[in-house]
Write a protein that binds this DNA or RNA. Sequence first.
DNA 1: TCAGTTTGTCAACAGTGTTGACAAACTGGC
DNA 2: GCCAGTTTGTCAACACTGTTGACAAACTGA
Lengths: 217, 217
Amino acid sequence: MGRPASLSRASIIAAAALLVREQGVAALTARRLGEALGCDPTAVYRHFATMADLEREVGDRFLRAVDVRPRAGEGWRATTRRICVTLRRVQLRQPRLAALISAAPTRLANEMRITEALLRELARGGCSYTHAAASYHALIELAVGSAAIDAPIAAQPAAVRRRLYGEWRREYAKLPFARFPASVATSDQLYRGSAGDRFEAALDLLLDGIESRCSTR
Amino acid sequence: MGRPASLSRASIIAAAALLVREQGVAALTARRLGEALGCDPTAVYRHFATMADLEREVGDRFLRAVDVRPRAGEGWRATTRRICVTLRRVQLRQPRLAALISAAPTRLANEMRITEALLRELARGGCSYTHAAASYHALIELAVGSAAIDAPIAAQPAAVRRRLYGEWRREYAKLPFARFPASVATSDQLYRGSAGDRFEAALDLLLDGIESRCSTR
DNA sequence: TCAGTTTGTCAACAGTGTTGACAAACTGGC
DNA sequence: GCCAGTTTGTCAACACTGTTGACAAACTGA
């Protein structure tokens, strides 16, 4: 009953995801989306209460790209690590979406799928329920938080990023030694490699801590 | 020379910080700031190139509250932990500021001060330069990332937060067991305690990992 | 005194999300 | 077949946002 819908939640989400993929998350506005859909911008409000609601759905849609199936012969730690690395990489592509998704659990399809996979792997590693939950929260905070932090810089081209990291290192090196001895001494090692490398190093440290409190080691 | 300034960078930052403290970061707009200062909104642009520039300064100003001095008899790990917990708590109060500050190192006064303190404590713990840098990045990603994630919920009153956490736990418990066995089994332990508790647990796991790779343990 | 500079004011532009009135287009009941 | 009711897209408008360029006030150095 009622006027036949030319739009649907699914078609709007698809168009929004395409828009984000092609023009970045800043392009996801009611007016541009209306243009992409060939309809009035406010038509979207017939299917989503607010633009933020739509953004949540688009964010979860991007999480489809996270493959959580353990590979043959892959231990729990390797699988967990891979899921976290992929999760961060996906979140990283869309700065504001990462912040939105992570603000509260969306409890949408893909988020649940990833949660289940991480808890499953932690159980496989011999974590107690309590430790699995704590470890899950720790992994998510690090992976999603890291994405939220690194996203703005990840949006720059690789050459620009490397130049920036170099500049920062030099700035730490040039600090007055009297007040910043540790910074000067360490400056050479700060912001080394890519943000992804630094995240993986952090993840490995965290996984060390998690593993050390598991029963089966 | 020139018309005498009734405004200054410092007075604007102070007014902006007050605005944020009293009405939240969403209130930090050119027009509201102008109203608070008793001047035209665009006068701010004589002292800051963009509103984002001003926000960075306000963000760094909040970091003044982080006390990095080691207390008597406090080991490197305890000091490091305390700095991270405080840093997160300060960042947490102002959602968007956290995101802005963390997007790129501001290299403003207080950020440098905190960096120096963390590197100093890690050195005290016997970390090599390489390990200290990696650990520093890991700690910052976790602390600031966690703040960015938790900030929207932290803005709610405590009672609302507890209710939300309870609702989420129940939602995980009600998932179909066939597809979400681990989530259902762990549901009772998810979102337990406050977000601060969960962060501190994550921090302890990370510190375990960091410590295990230090020379002096 | 007068030119030059700084600094605040004002109007305006191009955006943003969102709302409420309206109309088109369908379905179920008579 | 027609009419009421419902859904759904359109349109104008509101209240915001950051930011710019022209202008004027108020000072300093020559």
